[in-house]
Amino acid sequence: MPNDSRFAAPATPRAEAVPEAAVAQIVAALGRIRFGDIRLTVHEGRLVQLDITERTRFAQT
C-alpha cells in the first residue's frame, strides 16, 4: 500500500506572510486581555480574520 493515493497527504496551498499590521493587532490583543480567546481565521493560507472574546471574572465573596 505504499503508493495508495487514498493515504497521500492532501495538497496544501502555499502560506503567505502575515502582514505586520495583523501581527501588531495580535500582539496588542494578547497584551490587553486577561481571560478569553483569540481566534485566527485562515482561508487558503491567508490570515483573513481576528476574533477576540474577552471574559470578565467576578471575585468570589
Rank of each mutant, 00 (worst) to 15 (best):
M1I: 01
P2Y: 12
P2S: 13
N3F: 14
N3D: 15
N3G: 12
D4L: 09
S5G: 06
S5T: 04
R6F: 00
R6A: 02
F7T: 02
F7G: 10
A8H: 03
A8Y: 04
A9H: 11
P10Q: 01
P10K: 02
P10W: 06
P10T: 00
A11T: 15
A11L: 11
T12D: 14
T12S: 13
P13W: 09
P13V: 06
P13T: 13
R14S: 15
R14I: 07
A15C: 06
A15P: 06
E16I: 04
E16Y: 07
A17G: 06
V18L: 11
V18W: 02
V18P: 09
P19E: 12
P19T: 03
E20N: 01
E20Y: 02
A21M: 00
A22T: 08
A22K: 04
V23Y: 04
V23K: 04
A24N: 10
Q25L: 13
Q25M: 10
Q25R: 14
Q25D: 04
I26N: 02
I26S: 00
I26M: 12
I26A: 05
I26V: 07
V27M: 09
V27C: 05
A28W: 00
A29I: 03
L30I: 06
L30W: 06
L30T: 03
G31V: 09
G31S: 14
R32H: 12
R32Q: 06
I33H: 00
I33A: 02
I33M: 05
R34C: 04
R34T: 07
F35T: 01
F35S: 04
G36R: 05
G36Q: 03
D37I: 08
I38S: 09
I38W: 01
I38N: 02
I38D: 06
R39Y: 05
R39I: 12
L40N: 11
T41D: 11
V42L: 13
V42T: 11
V42M: 12
V42G: 14
H43W: 09
H43A: 08
E44F: 12
E44G: 10
G45E: 00
G45M: 10
R46Y: 05
R46P: 03
L47M: 02
L47T: 03
V48H: 07
Q49R: 15
Q49D: 08
Q49E: 09
Q49C: 10
L50F: 12
L50A: 10
L50D: 11
L50R: 13
D51P: 05
D51C: 14
T53S: 08
T53R: 02
R55W: 11
R55L: 13
R55Y: 14
T56E: 13
T56D: 15
T56P: 01
R57M: 07
A59Q: 15
A59S: 15
A59C: 13
Q60D: 02
Q60N: 05
Q60I: 08
T61W: 14
T61Y: 12
